[in-house]
Amino acid sequence: MTTATLTKTETAGAALPRRRRGDGRVALAFLAPVLIGFAAFYVYPAVRGAWYSLTDWNLLSEPGFVGLDNYAELVRDPLFWNSLKVTAYYVVLTVGMQIVLGLGLAALMHRLTRSLVLRSLLVVPWLVPSVTSALLWMWLLDANLGFLNHLLVSLGLDNQGFLTSPELAMPSVAAINAWGATGYTTLLLYAGMLLVPQQIYEAAALDGTGEVRQFFRITLPLLRPILAFVLVVSLIDSFQLFDAVAVTTKGGPVDATRVVYYYIYEEAFTHFKMGYASALALSLVLILGLLTFVQMRLLRASRSDLA
């Protein structure tokens, strides 16, 4: 009884904190490491990038102001539009694969097993550095010497240029990255499923609702905030595709995998057009910001049906 009262008063006290002088400074001290990092590695480069996007800097010469020329060039640049197109294609493919596979695996784990070993095994591909996994798959998928093609041929089928044909290259890259990321997505979704109160499932089971119906009527709707979060994060993440392309296809065949990040990299560090590359990068920031905003709105991510 006494304990309960005590806790109650304490809670009430915490809810109405008295303003203490000096809090701001202490808070600042705690925030400083993050703020300094943020300022040095995000704000400062971003501001510099914005400035470079208005210049013709080529890394070695002094940057000269050219106004909005870079942006005008960008609008007319077919390779830029192509890079956006193939990036969008990639994002749809890889996010689709990740979410569908992740949901399936998470649901299986949620309803069938709580095994810690299985859960840990799921994230193993995610722990492999992406360059390593790209290299690994480049060998496995090689058109002539790859193991997968060896299997296809021994089954009497034709070998496939997984990474070398214009039709298959992008789906292959998407699959490679989905392979790496699915485990992590699964874990997030699985954690979300654990938040769904068990009673709802019990009630549904009493009413004779089957597993499949439970998944679509209970799990999926109540998972919405987590799904929204996963969608936003994996979308932004997959927009930043670079390493798998740099390792396996180098943007080819015929621009089929020249995604926007790889294009920016090429313009900046192969062709040394730093000014133009900065303009490309800033346009991408704009597009990503817009996409995230629209998504958050559409999915009402901040609100949960459980509340």
Partner: peptide, 20 residues
């Protein structure tokens, strides 16, 4: 010769070394 879209990404020397 191998069709271009089914060419190994590992380079001609790898292909020749593999006896292909």
């Amino acid at each position: 010769a191998t069709p271009y879209d089914k060419t190994s990404s590992l380079g001609p020397d790898t292909m020749l070394n593999a006896g292909k």
